[in-house]
């Protein structure tokens, strides 16, 4: 049941997104804001607990980027969640780069190549949706220790070695838990 309602939400968001891209519909952007802004804030707060100002700044920045880049979004190369996640991830990295411990003139936006260059392909879109559903269902069935490392790495933005320090586990254990999880989610592509 849950899956059905999730998919419905996804479709509503997708309609809003295309309204933003094609009609520059600010109402649609407000609905996207209502859905995504709390998630972007939560995503930032998991890496920097208590940093509410940073979370607000990044949420704002991401929503503006969504508006400005709307015409670049192509549903056949990435689900909307994935697209917004990568923007939020990049914005978080960018924020840390500008305000963090060490300065760098590398711009994470330069890494967008992986998303931008795929040709539209209807089979890929269907494949994309199947992958997403499989991952969504698979995540809930992972053992808690594997869920824990995935959330350290993805949500808190910890490297494997930082995760191993914080969890008090050997680096090898962290790496193997991540890999086990990836295997269970059938995410690893065999060569």
């Amino acid at each position: 049941m849950n899956t059905v309602s999730e998919t419905k939400t996804d479709n509503t968001l997708l309609v809003d997104m295309s309204q933003v891209a094609q009609a520059r519909d600010t109402r649609a952007l407000e609905r996207l804001f209502d859905h995504y802004a709390p998630r972007i804030r939560a995503f930032c707060l998991s890496s920097q607990p208590g940093a509410n100002l940073m979370a607000d700044d990044i949420a704002q920045e991401v929503m503006i980027r969504i508006w400005n880049k709307a015409h670049l979004y192509n549903p056949s190369t990435a689900s909307l969640n994935t697209w917004v996640f990568t923007i939020a991830r990049n914005a978080r990295i960018d924020y840390m780069r500008k305000n963090g411990r060490y300065q760098s003139d590398i711009d994470p936006e330069d890494f967008w190549s992986e998303m931008a260059d795929e040709n539209a392909d209807p089979f890929r879109e269907a494949q994309q949706q199947r992958d997403q559903v499989r991952i969504r269902e698979g995540l809930t069935q992972l053992p808690s220790e594997q869920q824990q490392v995935l959330s350290k790495v993805y949500l808190e933005g910890k490297s494997h070695s930082e995760a191993s320090e914080e969890l008090g586990l050997p680096l090898g254990t962290v790496k193997s838990r991540v890999r086990l999880a990836l295997n269970k989610l059938s995410v690893i592509i065999k060569r």
């Binding site: 969640n81 996640f85 995935l150 959330s151």
Partner: peptide, 20 residues
Amino acid sequence: RDQVRRLNNIGAELFSEHSA
């Protein structure tokens, strides 16, 4: 690239399931 796209999908799921 394909591999990274799939790995991004995991991040997207965790991201969209996690709200405060």
